[in-house]
Design a binder for these strands. Structure first.
Lengths: 148, 148
DNA sequence: CGAATGTCTATAGAAATAGTAGAGTTACAC
DNA sequence: GTGTAACTCTACTATTTCTATAGACATTCG
């Protein structure tokens, strides 16, 4: 299971992706629109900012905006920032590798081989799907309606 | 990440799969062989027993054995017992479905579609791999050595 | 200036994780 | 039929993670 926090982060990003690229969106607006506790969302957006995903403007007329195009922000990237490693085992993590001290020899680890496949399959989906993809169905549905 | 407990469970099952089908293996032996805290392993095996995966014999000469062939015990099945739902979102779980109260309409949920793909990919691997598969490489390596 | 907005750090309650403890039950060996 | 070696069951605990909440601070616009 991914955390609630990660779900909030992804939802928040879809809001930013939906907004005009140069118009900052206020935390309160995002929170209201996606039913996210405001103070919690503050932390999440700050975290995303520190990781170079979003930018912010302070003061009146302030808010958040995407720092790069929605097509370049993958689900995997966000999950790593918020939830940590994608891999199901520490010894399979790319960003936070840690040897399993209870198995001798990764080549022989029977469990590892199976979860390596899981990790591969998961990464394939998470890093090939972007925030832009997430909001696309909505747009195409809109287009469909307009063309009807 | 899967829990340590699940890793222990899978390791313990490979030990049982490696043993003679009618010779019970003692908890202490499994614990020693796989470096699992004994008292913790007790709980795990008991849990697996209650879910019909393994059987036990009490008293002297007692121990645990598989209740069904290793080829029929999938990783997915064990993970569900020990760690709970495989799905990354409650609203995608087969065994523990729960509606997300913060998204209106699952058809529209942008996040859900992506994680549905993740869940599918994960399940495909986890339910097509069995304990027998996990110990297979070891056996074939053994065979290779014997034939050399 | 002052109000609106993001920034940062601390705190806290609840749940999950990873064990540990110990009393109880069963079954084999003798 | 007793002793002991094994599994059984329940409860407890320490640590960490999750999900927030609180409040003082900093910045910007009008």
């Amino acid at each position: 299971m991914i955390t609630q926090k990660a779900k909030y982060a992804l939802r928040a990003l879809t809001v930013l992706a939906d907004a005009d690229a140069d118009e900052p969106v206020m935390i309160s607006d995002i929170a209201a629109q996606q039913k996210i506790p405001k103070k919690f969302l503050e932390q999440i957006l700050l975290d995303l900012k520190h990781h170079g995903v979003v930018a912010s403007r302070r003061g009146k007329q302030g808010g958040y905006l995407l720092l790069k195009p929605a097509q370049t922000i993958t689900f995997g990237e966000i999950l790593r920032i918020i939830d940590g490693p994608i891999a199901p085992l520490p010894c399979l993590s790319i960003t936070a590798y840690r040897r399993c001290d209870d198995c001798d020899g990764e080549q022989n680890c029977q469990i590892r081989h199976v979860f390596a496949k899981v990790a591969d399959a998961t990464r394939k989906v998470l890093f090939s799907t972007t925030i832009a993809d997430a909001i696309a169905p909505k747009h195409s549905a809109e287009v469909t309606r307009l063309l009807a």
